[in-house]
Write a protein that binds this DNA or RNA. Sequence first.
DNA 1: TGTACATCAGTGAACGCGCGTTCACTGATGTAC
DNA 2: TGTACATCAGTGAACGCGCGTTCACTGATGTAC
Lengths: 234, 234
Amino acid sequence: MARKRNEELNAATAEAIKNAARQLMAEEGTNGLSIRGIAKVIDLTPPAIYHYFASLDELTTVLIAENFNALADALEQASAKSSAKTAGNRLFDVTLAYRQWSVENPLDFQLIYGNPIPGYVAPPEATVPAVVRTFVVAVSLMEEALHTGELVPVAPYSDVPEPARARIQELIDENGYPIAVLSMYLTLVLWTQIHGLIYLEVFNHIQHNVGDTDVFYRAQMTSMLTAMGLKTFT
Amino acid sequence: MARKRNEELNAATAEAIKNAARQLMAEEGTNGLSIRGIAKVIDLTPPAIYHYFASLDELTTVLIAENFNALADALEQASAKSSAKTAGNRLFDVTLAYRQWSVENPLDFQLIYGNPIPGYVAPPEATVPAVVRTFVVAVSLMEEALHTGELVPVAPYSDVPEPARARIQELIDENGYPIAVLSMYLTLVLWTQIHGLIYLEVFNHIQHNVGDTDVFYRAQMTSMLTAMGLKTFT
DNA sequence: TGTACATCAGTGAACGCGCGTTCACTGATGTAC
DNA sequence: TGTACATCAGTGAACGCGCGTTCACTGATGTAC
């Protein structure tokens, strides 16, 4: 019981450290992250942090993995929430959730997709599974829309150009994904458009040109999904 | 003559400082930029730098402005080089030049479009004119393609959604741009897709999925321009 | 219930480092007579 | 042509700062008898 209480306190402090880390990044950018800065925020001495994380790099890795998972959670929730709708409309909702999470947590987004902290490289084993989670949500809805005939591929998006086709086939084979090359290709293309809009918004380059970024984003998602051949679309 | 020689040496040193700055960023990321680091590279003492730039921020501002202009130069050259082609094909060439400059100068791209150096905000008067230059190249080709009937707007890209339409009209009126709202809208949409692909490539998130990024980029530009209604397209 | 012991979260001092910026200066070069 | 002076690019020392990380330690808490 006492031991358990200890573990709880321990976990609570680790949480406090991570929260302080996020707060620092929110205030000063991803490079504002520092052991000493965190210590100041939660009123501990810097060495105390080392009881919870072996180094600043390890802490960063943990934060990155958590961010990917938080994004994946948001997408899965969006998908589940609209489970009464058609796959295409659910996919649309998922793209909205992608942006929403990103602009609500701009520094978390920057940490995982923006320029890396100098000298730091995230270990793939800590991040890849979480990245895959985010991708799977969208791909499976795309696949479903394709299967049900809700999405009827339209040129120029009905053909997968080489060598992307070959590479995607390879990825599908390697990992045993139960999906068509076209589903993955269309999702990838959509994914690039999503990130263009989000990057530009998070780095503040688009607001000036389009007025309301939320509405603009919805319009672009609608346009692209329509151009790809999605029918019966809200 | 002697005075002139002095001025030349002076300008040469300023160039050396900027080159050292770019080299440092290339090696260690945009945050690797430092007065002391530059001094080390060109074998001067740190205070000597202050004869050429008033502060690190001023140097950064100069670099940003130069980068935007270098990008604009690259686009204008691409446009001029293919002046025998139709507007639509020239626009395609310009989009290729946009990516080419960005992936050849990834740190220069990151400096102007990536996450800001913490605590630094670029003064708009130093950057906006150069940004506009890059945009004008593409918009005017889009406008020409629309005028000649080479581009016949196709749904869903034939309508400009509100409030983007209102905002774009405002920008056109404020600045006296001699172009249609639709030209600017389509260019903006293309611009978001371009940046999605480039950001993901520069930050190393797309290579794994698509194989050859160059070919993939061309395919996406072709697809999007086609979806927008561009005809007779290489 | 009371005492001796073990655990371990957190401390405080120190390490070596790099940073932007300032200041008074030096010394080569060019200029004016 | 020769000398006195002005210019100014670059120096060297110093400022106060923040950083990650290490180390030997303390002292409260929980554990075992």
